[in-house]
Amino acid sequence: MEIKSIMSPLSKTAIDELNAGDMVKMTGIIYTARDAAHKRMIQLLNQNIPLPFDIAGQTIYYAGPCPPKPGQVIGSAGPTTSSRVDVYTPPLLARGLNAMIGKGPRSRAVIDAMVEYKAVYLAATGGAGALIASCIKKADIVAFEDLGPEAIYRLVVEDLPLIVAIDCRGSSLYS
């Protein structure tokens, strides 16, 4: 079983080398955001207000973790269903979002925008919350703290196990 190591943020060259079906382990920086945080980011964009972090080149992880126990970096932190943020995703890809991590298929509009802006979608294992938390070495709230588990966190991850589900050419494991 060949498993590639990749670094986040991903370069366009690295994205180009990923093919649907590849098994990878990701190390680096990723940002969490789910439904409510996406909705707010789009509202900011519509009002021409800068986002709380520069999204260009970055990776977003669709997740709303459990609260950490004392001494823990983060609680269980598996992926949530990606399709719920499909409606918000193309404008973020247009602003340079490079990679997304979640679970489940994406809409045609998202896949088309991924091809246009050369982005990749990786599947994390839904329900592997404790295992994924063990790959998260640091977690800091970046924005929308009032949203609780839906706040945006900046995570430092090490060897996060993922599968390339849709590559930058639009090839998808779901179809």
Partner: peptide
């Protein structure tokens, strides 16, 4: 570790 299996508890 007595951690939730999944974050969606």
């Amino acid at each position: 570790q007595q951690m939730p299996i999944c974050q969606d508890t």
